[in-house]
Amino acid sequence: MNRKVLIAGLVIVVPFIVLLVMNLGRDPHKVDSPLIGKASPPFSLRQVGTPAVVDIMSLRGKPVVLNFWATWCVPCYAEHPVLVAGARQYADKAQFVGVVYDDQENKIVQFLAENGSSYPTLFDESGQTAIAFGVYGVPETFFLDADGKIVDKHVGPLDPATLEAKLRLAGAFR
């Protein structure tokens, strides 16, 4: 038995195996947002189908649900009714805002005509707002508290229970 070889070999091999075991079940696509706990980036965008411009800063004072979506995104179809209903249900507790990016305005207008809406939808034509929020794909939803601080981020379509839980986190029921 060559002790040097044994020790050298085990020193290389064992931590390596441990490392791989620790990472089993890791999802390489899941990346935490560094924005949580930070102030929301300031931006203003035009509302879809109108010349009106909405400034995110003006929405302070109430928690904000900021939903990034697009008409080509299949899960967004499932999520849309949840948001429409949620915006009505929590009308006095939180402000819902949709941001569409990587899309065409006429398609958004058509989508909203077909599926209804109960909150303003903004169009991020340049995609720069999505970038400032570190959006990977759609749908992604950010929850801002009354001071404009980002409290949480949800990746993928929302369901009513999650929506309520995250709103609570954002201080909507205080």
Partner: peptide
């Protein structure tokens, strides 16, 4: 639903909310 009606409704929720409006689009600085 006709387009015009929809457009009106898109504006409505915000009008009800009456947030301040600025005139220009500002990307995050």
């Amino acid at each position: 639903f006709v387009l015009a009606l929809t457009l009106l409704m898109l504006v409505l929720p915000l009008a009800a909310q009456a947030p301040e409006r600025s005139d220009e689009i500002k990307s995050p600085d």
